[in-house]
């Protein structure tokens, strides 16, 4: 009797759904609760406030279980009328790499196996500054600065026209209203297109779970910034989103022993970065690529 009402098309449709469902069952039941939660999590920008609250509790609980520390996860949004900009005085940078390790400590980067660093200090011979291909970042002299060399710390340049955002196939990375390029680590699929697209080598692939000494965790974390990352995602400098949205200088600015690093709001005429742009000779890396970085290098005039 029933067969009379069942067309061939609906029969195939239903049977395929049943087969698909039964194929999924072992997968969903075998994977842990954590992975199922992650799998069902929405994109960060599409979450409602309640969903974000649940997310915070879930992640804090999970980090407590995994690392034995009470993290303070923030999802603070961009402050209105801000556009963060960075200045770096090349005539004063001595290439001591304090910023690299200050950044690593602040942002809970993996210390070794694998090592992950968001700042790369490159060394160039004076007189061949244009040839970034001739730069070296493994330099290791007894003391710095060395004669005849200049040092350029490079990190994410927070472009206004970011190529990494354009290539992301799943929109896991985007530009925030205050100009910072951030990654939703839970949404990232680890395809590394963005690493290829970035002309500054500003992005880092996380090859393994972070390897951080237990007493070295920075407990003040931001969802889009320095929370402990999972493996197989892409991470990057966010100008210390967890700090600057509270009005605090980024970690690399505070740790620099020569005071070469300057930070401020590009929309505020009284800010330090505006003073730099108005009074110093500034340039940006690879301006010809039209990426419009918000990272200004300058020389003392």
């Amino acid at each position: 009797m029933l067969d009379r009402f069942l067309t061939r098309r609906t029969f195939l449709h239903r049977i395929s759904m049943v087969v698909l469902g039964s194929l999924c069952m072992p997968f969903l039941s075998s994977c842990g609760k954590e992975r199922a939660e992650d799998f069902l999590q929405k994109h960060f920008l599409e979450m409602t406030t309640e969903e974000k609250e649940i997310l915070i509790n879930r992640l804090e609980e999970r980090y407590f279980k995994k690392y034995g520390k009470k993290f303070n996860l923030s999802i603070q949004e961009a402050i209105p009328n801000t556009l963060w900009g960075y200045g770096l005085d090349l005539s004063r940078c001595i290439g001591c790499r304090r910023c690299v390790y200050g950044c690593v400590e602040e942002n809970n980067c993996s210390r070794e196996k694998p090592q992950s660093q968001w700042i790369r200090v490159i060394r160039l011979k004076k007189g061949s500054l244009i040839n970034l291909e001739n730069s070296e970042h493994y330099y290791n002299p007894d003391t710095v600065p060395e004669k005849d060399f200049i040092y350029i710390p490079v990190q994410c340049q927070q472009c206004e026209n970011p190529p990494c955002v354009k290539v992301c196939p799943v929109h896991a990375t985007w530009k925030e209203p205050d100009g910072m390029i951030v990654v939703d680590y839970n949404w990232c699929i680890g395809c590394r297109y963005c690493i290829t697209a970035c002309p500054y080598r500003g992005r880092v692939f996380n090859w393994a779970d972070p390897n951080v000494p237990t007493d070295k965790w920075n407990l003040s974390i931001h969802y889009l910034g320095n929370r402990p990352r999972m493996r197989n995602i892409v991470e990057k400098c966010t100008f210390c989103v967890q700090r600057v949205r509270r009005g605090r200088y980024p970690a690399c600015v505070e740790v620099c022993p020569t005071g070469s690093r300057k930070f401020g709001n590009l929309l505020d005429p009284q800010s330090e970065i505006r003073y730099v742009i108005q009074n110093k000779r500034t340039f940006r890396l690879k301006e010809d690529l039209n990426t419009e970085p918000k990272f200004y290098y300058f020389f003392e005039a």
Partner: peptide, 19 residues
């Protein structure tokens, strides 16, 4: 005065970098 720099990053195939 000149100061001692922090250590350079590990090379990709360094033992301390490979799992």
């Amino acid at each position: 005065k000149p100061i001692k720099p922090e250590p350079p990053p590990f090379a990709p195939k360094d033992k301390r970098n490979v799992r």
